[in-house]
């Protein structure tokens, strides 16, 4: 077992998710199945191998610093679940 239900609860919290109690065991089992399978990577010695984050030969793609028209307030708010006086409305953040 790589992770316990307690670990999974903590990872869920970091991910801003909740796993319902009834599904916790199955979820932890599936999680462990993948992590156990990842053990095969330990067969490989990767000392000194450069990691690949991206396959492209590009870096620092820049453009001229010219102003272009952005999105209007109205359009930006078009999909807001709740909007208030031109802003996104959320429940209280600070107690």
């Amino acid at each position: 077992m790589k992770v316990t239900t307690k670990d999974v609860e903590y990872i869920a919290q970091l991910s801003r998710l909740t796993i319902p109690e009834g599904e916790m065991e199955k979820f932890t089992e599936q999680f462990n199945q993948i992590l156990n399978y990842a053990d095969i990577l330990n067969k490989l010695d990767t000392t000194g191998i450069e990691p690949t984050a991206n396959v492209l030969p590009l870096s620092n793609v820049l453009r001229e610093d010219v102003a272009i028209e952005g999105v209007s307030q109205e359009v930006a708010l078009a999909n807001a679940p709740e909007a208030f006086e031109g802003g996104f409305k959320v429940p209280r953040v600070i107690e």
Binding site: P81, E82, P91
Partner: peptide, 15 residues
């Protein structure tokens, strides 16, 4: 749940 997408409307705080 802030700018777009599904929102639970019952929760009492932002988190």
């Amino acid at each position: 749940g802030v700018r777009y997408g599904y929102r639970n409307l019952k929760a009492g705080s932002a988190p």
